[in-house]
Amino acid sequence: MKLDEQTFSSHKTAMLTLKEVTKVFKNRARTTVALHRVTFTVAPGRIVALVGESGSGKTTLARIVTGIEKPTEGSVTLGEWQVDRLRSSQLRVYRRYVQMVFQDPFSSLNPHNTVLQTIVRPLMNHLHLNVKQARLQALEIMNTVRLTPTDQFAHKKPHQLSGGQRQRLVIARAIAPNPELIVADEPVSMLDVSIRADILELIDQLRKRTGMSVLYITHDLYSARAMADEVVVLYKGHVVERGNIEEVISHAQHPYTQLLLQAIPNPWKKRQPTAHRVDGSESAPHFAEIPAKDEITLYGRLHAGDKGCPFAARCELVSGECLQAKPSLKGTEVHQVSCWNRQV
């Protein structure tokens, strides 16, 4: 199972493949389907955006990809790693190849450790460098993520850094063991807009330079378009639309993807309300009209017995079929949608 260290680190070839991944959480009161037969791949060097709202299952998916959680059904592989079957001793090795960047740079760093210590640790733990080598390497990584001048930053602690600098440090720590894949869970949503572009650009540069792939988890289609190559739209644990990002955004088919796109604040559009409604008419959608009770449906759990389309309760296009059976993903290689009423 263990891969050849040398080839693994020099050029990256590992493909992340999720096949029919289902995750069910059970407790005495209820059974919750967090993910329902999710299938997609992240090719080496690609950035795939996973887009959805709270409760859509995106974080559960991240936990499965990083091996924190095991899927109930289906398989997850990264290169030769069978992620869903790893034992805890293997997990420790696996984590060298998959690293995470979290949303909150204020709580994901150890406040006691300096910048240098934070980056040195994964280098020693995962790459087994000695202290001297690790320090040299860490300084180089600081240059890469532009925590410069390095001598000024090396001995600072997290509280002495700004939000953007902290997130750079989190990224530095993640790329230190030279991973195959980075799972970035809302890496910019807590930062000011003025520094978001910078951080996204950094992630983009890093993948070009190192050939790593990125699973970019976000609720923001705008930033997804700025960085990702492909997008997977998740609703209540179901992939409702998927494909090339430009294609999906310019020809969004699923009513949910369209709703997400229209919800992005867009002051320029206000004066010329041409946003196509879900039914295809010209008027702008009235979000205020969505009855608030639908928020319960939105956040409510999906039960094991539910057989219809997960979006049926909120959908304007709903028809008999939608309540009877789940639609499946259909379409072309670059764009697929899961809807009874819409096709690519």
């Binding site: 709202e53 709270s54 609720h219 923001d220 709703l259 997400l260 229209q262 919800a263 992005i264 604040p265 009235h286 979000f287 205020a288 969505i290 608030a292 928020e295 939105l298």
Partner: peptide, 10 residues
Amino acid sequence: DVIVQKAIVE
């Protein structure tokens, strides 16, 4: 969430 945000602002 963005959709809820939009609804509340409107």
